[in-house]
């Protein structure tokens, strides 16, 4: 199986990327939740110190990339499951491409905005 709009050009590599990015996202989520546990009354300086660290910047950037890949594959899967001829008839392909374009747009905004946040303070 191959399709021009999926990320890794095949279902298997998409499946692997989806799992790999899920693990990164889970690790990052646990890390942030853990930092809230360690600093129950977090103030600005503590918060800033966490994100200023270069390792943390890399971790955040890798997670941002994982988020973009994960969200794209996830939303692509959803779009190919639900936006089909069964629901949308002849217009299905057009509607699906429009939906996918919207997802790409939002993902691009997240990516650029995220990089600006991580390097802009």
């Amino acid at each position: 199986m191959s399709n021009v709009t999926n990320l890794g050009r095949s279902g298997l590599s998409d499946w692997v990327i989806q799992r790999f990015s899920a693990v990164i996202l889970a690790a990052y989520t646990f890390f942030i939740l853990g930092s809230f546990l360690i600093h129950p009354d977090m103030d600005y300086v503590q918060w800033k110190t966490i994100f200023e660290n270069n390792l943390m910047r890399i971790f955040s950037l890798v997670t941002l990339a994982a988020l973009c890949a994960h969200a794209w594959i996830g939303m692509w899967t959803v779009s190919t499951d639900y936006i089909t001829a069964l629901q949308f008839g002849k217009r299905a392909t057009a509607v699906r491409l429009l939906f996918q374009a919207g997802c790409i747009l939002l993902i691009s905004v997240y990516l650029i905005w995220g990089i600006q946040i991580l390097w802009g303070f």
Binding site: Y44, W47, K48, F51, L67, A71, G74, M75, C103, L106, Y110, W113, G114, Q116, I117, F121
Partner: peptide, 16 residues
């Protein structure tokens, strides 16, 4: 996927 916008907004503000 949509909610990430809120989280990024908070992250942006909180670090600025």
């Amino acid at each position: 996927f949509l909610g990430v916008a809120l989280l990024l907004y908070f992250l942006d503000l909180s670090l600025q």
